[in-house]
């Protein structure tokens, strides 16, 4: 009570107002200190570890990773996995998101929920379902044989087909949702205007739809790329050691062979890739490429 009255009394004065300002800012301290100690310090220590071996400063970890064609190939595998997954997700997700954004009423809510729900199902559970599907007596072979595409069931699990099938399955909603949120805002009258001015569908798509939905493409692409380049559970179960990725090497370095400098160096390289991606996407969104006008 007294505090409130004091506040009223001294409202125009600067000094007491400043005191309350400082005291209230203290509420941020526990969260900030916690995140500094439990998050920032460990990540910085990990970066530090990548430059240190038993004798002190050393670049041996990086020399090992960047000087060995085996590890360069693994980094290439991770990037290839992320590129193909992102490209397929975009190709499939773009028309799907478009349809979702154009449908109105109750159907839109239902279809949106159906895209959203798989996101909340555990990745381990979905990948487990995928491994069952890929079995010789699984549903994919069942369908292929019964539809007459193949004579007898073929081995699918531990192939790159099952890897990409699974990656797209797990990460596709991460592409559709950002695309949908941008497409929903697009005024459909713009397309009619373009058509009535004589532009064909292809021309309208390239000059109107595509530039206007570019922020969604960038957001969805960045999201899918950054999570698929770091994916661990899905590639691990669907192809295993046949297609080694950076994640696989990092986990092995710490959990099996105990080469911590190798793991730390790989982790820092992955950090750099993620950071570069985030910076590039925020630069692309900000660039006046026509999409904001």
């Amino acid at each position: 009570m007294t505090l409130a009255r004091d506040d009223l009394a001294v409202m125009p004065a600067a000094a007491p107002a400043r005191w309350t300002f400082d005291a209230k800012a203290l509420i941020a301290v526990p969260g900030l200190v916690f995140m500094a100690l439990a998050f920032a310090v460990p990540v910085l220590m990990l970066v530090g570890d990548s430059f240190v071996d038993r004798d002190g400063f050393s670049l041996a970890g990086y020399r090992k990773v960047l000087g060995d064609p085996y590890y360069i190939g693994i980094i290439g595998n991770s990037l290839q996995l992320a590129c193909i997954t992102t490209a397929v997700c975009l190709a499939v997700g773009y028309p799907a998101a478009w349809a979702l954004a154009r449908i109105r009423g109750a159907w839109q809510v239902i279809l949106f929920a159906l895209i959203f729900l798989p996101l909340t199902v555990s990745i381990v559970v979905k990948t487990f379902g995928l491994t069952i599907m890929m079995r010789r007596d699984g549903i994919i072979n069942f369908l292929l044989v019964n539809l007459g595409f193949i004579e007898r069931p073929m081995r699918l699990v531990f192939t790159e087909f099952s890897l990409y099938f699974g990656m797209v399955n797990v990460f596709l909603p991460f592409m559709i949702l950002p695309l949908y949120s941008v497409m929903r805002m697009l005024d459909p009258r713009l397309l009619d205007a373009s058509a009535s001015l004589g532009a064909g569908p292809v021309h309208t798509f390239l000059r109107v739809t595509l530039p206007l939905t570019m922020p969604g493409i960038i957001a969805g692409g960045t999201l899918v790329f950054s999570i698929s380049v770091a994916a661990y559970v899905t590639p691990g179960l669907l192809v295993g050691d046949r297609f080694m990725t950076m994640s696989q090497v990092m986990a092995k370095a710490y959990l099996n062979i105990r080469d911590f400098q190798l793991g730390a160096s790989m982790a820092v390289i992955m950090l750099v890739i993620s950071a570069a991606l985030i910076l590039a996407s925020s630069y692309l969104v900000r660039t006046p490429g026509g999409e904001r006008r």
């Binding site: 499939v92 997700g93 028309p95 799907a96 478009w98 349809a99 979702l100 154009r102 449908i103 279809l111 159906l114 895209i115 798989p118 199902v121 559970v125 979905k126 990948t127 487990f128 379902g129 995928l130 069952i132 599907m133 549903i139 399955n169 596709l172 909603p173 559709i176």
Partner: peptide, 21 residues
């Protein structure tokens, strides 16, 4: 129509592993 067809197939595809489990 094409986009709606893709959306339908995408939903079926996303639910496949869940329904299998």
């Amino acid at each position: 129509l094409f986009c709606r067809l893709v959306l339908g197939l995408v939903i079926a595809f996303l639910f496949l592993p869940i329904l299998i489990v």
